[in-house]
Design a binder for these strands. Structure first.
Lengths: 340, 340
DNA sequence: TTTTTCAATGTAATGGTTTCCATTATTTTT
DNA sequence: AAAAATAATGGAAACCATTACATTGAAAAA
């Protein structure tokens, strides 16, 4: 199984390599007859340019690198799908990596992508990423970089995210507008920023509606663990507050699922006794009993938009046009189901 | 931001390119002093070999290509995770593509991967793949190929799958052993083979337990649609058979979810009146009400095992050892929950 | 007829690394 | 002192495609 190269084509036609190359690129240099001959043989032998050689020459790989914290995640599945479709349209390949929410791994993966010579990089930061030197390195090398969903403020690059604060604000406002007053919050940690913003949105909604913010209603959860953390905190909450709590806004759907589990198991009626709204709108939310209200983040759009931006920046770079980082907000939707 | 090449290192040290290259590869040719000098400058300047140049020279890309039918899928998320981890261990990159269950796209993606020069390919076939010429092409080029989960029989390459027939047999046998007799089956289409095998396992379990196979209890479903198809078929089944049916084995969890939805909505008690067992053990199955019994397919292991095999075959190829295709069966587990 | 023009093709350098094959300088053996 | 062996380094080809530049031959203008 010998590979076909320009050299072989040239030999068979008694031409030089450069003439063959030019013929294929439709240079005005080459005569119509010669082009015809070359094209015929090329299709006959099924010639395909060697990708490594083209990359070496052009200093481009037609590949973008993507780092996400975790592949097994409803939201990120959609993000990946969006990225793949957009990349496919523009004839780019996607190298996928996961950081497993580990800063050291993320750093290593960035290094690998840079060594590989990808044309652009998309990252959703890990929860443990504090230092941004590895991102600066990407910038310094002039490689287009787009952060999505889990972003960092202190780096000058394009960013695609949802407005977590606003989304949380809307969800909590909805609860308030429907008569709930003692609204608890199952919050995530101080990293990523998303958790913090959701908490801030929650708090602001209360204050704007003249409801006193009660910090004893805020439960710090491990948002990476399984749903038992939601179960446990629901139990704790009932112990702490008994009847003096009527709704929960959770930082993600997983915690809400755990809480629902606890309430169902203990005969606490949803939404009569306790209402819930989650965040992310996992598929599971729609089929739970009761079905869970949640906030749709539009992962597919986030992925495709992020890819679109990075590919656009690659394009700019190739054309020598300076890149202006942009910040895109993907609109969220509050999806009301039976849990409130 | 100038890139560091061997040439630059050589110039700075007053050596030839070849000496520098050899020094870095620890050839016995080069003196200890020179090696020392080279290594120092290399670390100082942070030299990294140009990946395209290495690929061009070595005819290897250190990249494997993966084609799956759909990224948004609990099972495939785990498969991807398994592949990524295994590839990462062996310092291989993963180019991910999805076929969207479309044969034409799958064919195109294979073509792209071959053009890109990946060292190996992993595919889970689309439901619409009938012709296998594109896979033969991979074989002809001598590129290691591993099919997983959705495989084809008529191609000589390594395969990693679950024993669908056995898994279905065990699930249905479990139902029979627990007193269920009129067991319906919500089956998938004639492609992929998995659906057929699950149906055959269902049928064999009935026959082996002296229960008459009743084809009116088998409902052909569109396994790619959303769960409403499960809902609709559950309704149809009750209309058809009324009380004369006491369990369902579904070809996937999605259909079971739809069926549960129908039964819950119509006051049909699970598992007292109707028992259910699904297939794939999606996360959602564990949090449904009632929770759904299902068959765990171990996607992570399937992914990591598939990657392991393809990387091993790449290794064999590089060493000139002939490749012997292997067939691996990943063991399934029947997970019993409250639906039966 | 001589010079200019241009159409068509070829040569060679480039991109960066690897490796076979010299070449030079030094040391050992006869 | 001459020949052989060894150590250290350099040159150049190969991987393959691209493109600036050079060459050839023929037609058009002087």
């Amino acid at each position: 199984m010998e590979t076909i190269t320009l050299k072989k084509i040239a030999e068979q036609l008694g031409l030089s390599i450069s003439t063959v190359s030019k013929a294929l690129k439709d240079y005005p240099d080459v005569s119509a007859k010669t082009k015809e001959k070359v094209r015929n043989l090329v299709t006959e032998l099924n010639y395909v340019p060697n990708s490594s050689a083209v990359s070496l020459r052009s200093q481009r790989t037609n590949t973008i690198g993507v780092i996400i914290p975790e592949t097994v995640h409803h939201f990120f599945s959609y993000v990946i799908k969006g990225i793949l479709e957009e990349a496919d349209k523009k004839k780019y390949n996607v190298i996928l990596m996961q950081s497993n929410e580990d800063y050291e791994i993320e750093k290593k993966q960035v290094e690998l992508l840079l060594n590989k010579g990808v044309d652009g990089i998309l990252i959703s930061l890990s929860n443990t990423t504090v230092c941004l030197d590895h991102l600066e390195k990407i910038r310094v090398q002039g490689i287009p970089l787009v952060l999505f969903d889990k972003i960092a403020k202190n780096i000058n690059c394009s960013k695609v995210k949802v407005d977590d604060r606003k989304a949380a604000y809307e969800a909590v406002s909805y609860l308030i507008d429907h008569g709930y007053r003692r609204i608890a919050h199952f919050r995530g940690g101080l990293i990523p920023q998303n958790s913090v913003d959701r908490f801030l949105g929650y708090k602001k909604a209360l204050i704007d509606h003249d409801i006193e913010f009660d910090s004893s209603l805020v439960y710090m959860c491990d948002s990476n663990s399984d749903f038992t953390d939601g179960f446990n905190n629901a139990e704790k909450m009932i112990q702490d507050h008994g009847d003096n709590v009527d709704a929960i806004f959770t930082v993600n759907d997983l915690l809400a699922i755990g809480a629902i589990d606890y309430f169902n198991a203990n005969g606490i009626k949803i939404p009569e006794r306790i209402a819930l709204i989650g965040f992310s709108n996992w598929f599971v939310s729609s089929v739970l009993t009761p079905s869970l209200s949640s906030i749709e983040q539009h992962g597919f759009e986030m992925g495709s938009k992020s890819a679109q931006i990075v590919l656009h920046e690659i394009d700019c770079k190739n054309k020598g046009i300076p890149i202006e980082p942009q910040q895109i907000i993907i609109e969220t939707n509050l999806i009301i189901r039976n849990s409130c």
